[in-house]
Design a protein around this nucleic acid. Sequence first.
DNA 1: GAGTGGTCTAGACCACCCT
DNA 2: GGGTGGTCTAGACCACTCA
Lengths: 234, 234
Amino acid sequence: MPDANDRLTYRDIKADIMARIQNRRWGPDQVLPAEVELAASYGCARATVNRALTELTDEGILERRRKAGTRVRAAPLRAARFEIPIVRRQIEEAGAVYDYRLISRAECRADAEPRLGGVFAAGEPLLHLHCLHLADDRPFQFENRFISLAALPQARDAAFDHLGPNEWLVSAVPYSEVEVSFLALGAEAPVTTQLGVEPGQALFCMERTTWWEGRTLTNVRLFHLPGYRMTTRY
Amino acid sequence: MPDANDRLTYRDIKADIMARIQNRRWGPDQVLPAEVELAASYGCARATVNRALTELTDEGILERRRKAGTRVRAAPLRAARFEIPIVRRQIEEAGAVYDYRLISRAECRADAEPRLGGVFAAGEPLLHLHCLHLADDRPFQFENRFISLAALPQARDAAFDHLGPNEWLVSAVPYSEVEVSFLALGAEAPVTTQLGVEPGQALFCMERTTWWEGRTLTNVRLFHLPGYRMTTRY
DNA sequence: GAGTGGTCTAGACCACCCT
DNA sequence: GGGTGGTCTAGACCACTCA
């Protein structure tokens, strides 16, 4: 019995269904009434119920199969959504002054580091950049980036001394396919000197690889200061 | 020009719009035609276009405001979805045999560790558990958990020697509110001995705090082996 | 004020897949 | 075979917010 005389929205229905699940009126693995029945009992159109149920399914609370019906997931399949921050915006939103420095810029081949073997085509020419992102003049994030010169030859003409490679890439090739990983790495040179941390210190690292039409464009490892964490609620 | 004579689905329309954005036919910050016009040009109902545009907005590609219309986000707001794994299922899906061991079980107060101050109510009685999750008899994940005995007194009666606390909690209080963090921590005792790693070794850690009706139920830190990473694509 | 997206309705057809 | 969810349609009203 959710609302009063007013018409129900799909949000009301979502909330009501969620409440029934939390109250155990609809327990784990239990099959819910069919959409038509729910629509009748809520006094609304089937499409409205459908939207509520579809969203709860996307959120991992329900499980739906044609003919089998809708049931409450016994172990809710929880998925956390993390916004992938753009470092400049991240720093500025924290009220600090963003600054950027290019530390080094060199060309190399894809076999320079063993881990690049699985990322780029063998022997492909790469641009290798080390960059530092600062918040209020203090190191905030160290960037170790490789850009494929085979896929993006125009990167050779970009200096990257004032515009960071991320912002350059977003304007050159937005909306590409991306793989993101979070991992923990012990600090090694040159991260240690740039971030001012001890060797071996545990650092939170975000690694990102970007493709465009099947070709690897860039791979980057972003190293954060000790204590950094990514957080979300659900 | 997406399909042939067949009726268009909202997926076709999504794909077509995405393609136009990638081809720069609709560049960054450009305003798209209104829903009614798109519907006319695709030869379908407005609701179908609406669903496509709504999903692209949720995915961070578009930005919509009433009256202002729909525009292409200049810097696509990317959000990555990570499934929060249940360790037993994670191990079994990798084709390994799951095993669980309770390492220690003790009662303490919320001031036992300084970091618990911000999580539990001051001085609250807690159950402190150390657990090990194994894959094929090898350590896979170390669990350092605190459970509020004020909020969950029935935890006192659970032995946790065969059923892990996560599975116990899921059956006791499913569908609660959760905050998840990913962070990097240097290994310390007792993690070092349980996972068999050197002190200071960088470990990927997932921390999770769970509430129910405003009270903190549990806080857990899950430590993974070196090299562990969480990955997703978008 | 007026144009846009947000949502609901009532009806329909179909694909899937359980029994 | 038949019941279920997935999707589309055509129309409608409303809330927001820009100019």
